[in-house]
């Protein structure tokens, strides 16, 4: 439905469930995709599955110097970065009273600071092209909070504030910056939950089911498309009605 032929996309965290679905979806819409992540094997497997127009660009987002190099590597591989999807995220859950500065810093670095460095790195090309899309994957807990996840929730809320500010600055250049905030999505992580945990979660979701990674990918394809050019600074909540924001 939405055509991204000729566009080059960089997706972080493409080795994970949601990131891989986003990369698949954007590739299916015709884009060239740069697959970034820390684990090379799943990235190679995904690239092999996609065939052409897929480039493996491993990067450790904990390492700011490596993060700053990633946009350059993506441009070398694909010629440009028209769409950046900051999807990578980690958790270091702990009760706030027990949370160490290290647990705080590592989550902030990967989830928030790397998104800042990457956005800055792709901005010059987007400004020159007078076209660009940045989609930051936030989370429902950035809006609602969650016990044990003060660091994660702060990083995800931080993405929303950063996106809105950047959206203001670059809107006149044809660049949009938006967030997608997933609720409970079926991934390898949620597969590990036991039946009781799943039942408890689903009790909070009016839709009565978990979301699928493809449903997150669909929203990213839309926000990346030319048709979404007038949407900027917004957060699209995809949570089956769990929080109606």
């Amino acid at each position: 439905m939405f055509d991204l032929s000729g566009k080059s996309v960089l997706v972080t965290g493409a080795s994970g469930g949601i990131g891989a679905a986003i990369a698949r979806g954007l590739h299916g819409a015709g884009a060239s995709v740069g697959l970034s992540g820390t684990r090379v094997e799943p990235l190679e497997a995904l690239a092999a599955e996609l065939g052409g127009r897929a480039h493996v660009l491993p990067c450790n987002l904990s390492d700011s110097a490596a993060v700053a190099e990633l946009p350059k590597q993506a441009v070398e591989a694909m010629g440009a970065v028209d769409v950046l999807v900051n999807n990578a995220g980690i958790t270091r859950d702990n009760l706030f009273m027990r949370m160490s500065e290290d647990e705080w810093d590592s989550v902030m670095q990967v989830n928030l600071k790397s998104a800042m460095i990457l956005s800055k790195g792709v901005m010059r090309g987007m400004m020159k092209a007078r076209w660009g899309r940045i989609v930051n994957i936030s989370s429902i807990v950035g809006a609602t909070g969650n016990p044990g996840q003060a660091n994660y929730a702060a990083s995800k809320a931080g993405l929303v504030g950063m996106s809105k500010s950047l959206a203001y600055e670059v809107a006149s250049r044809g660049i949009t910056v938006n967030c997608v905030a997933p609720g409970f999505i079926t991934t390898a992580m949620t597969e590990k939950l036991n039946e009781d945990q799943k039942t408890a979660i689903l009790g909070q979701v009016p839709a009565g089911r978990m979301g699928e990674a493809d449903e997150i990918a669909a929203s990213v394809i839309f926000l990346a498309s030319p048709e979404a050019g007038y949407i900027t600074g917004t957060t699209l909540h995809i949570n089956g009605g769990m929080a109606m924001l």
């Binding site: 010059r124 400004m127 020159k128 600055e169 670059v170 006149s172 250049r173």
Partner: peptide
Amino acid sequence: SLDTVELVM
């Protein structure tokens, strides 16, 4: 201010 950034670029 953004124009000045672009000029420098």
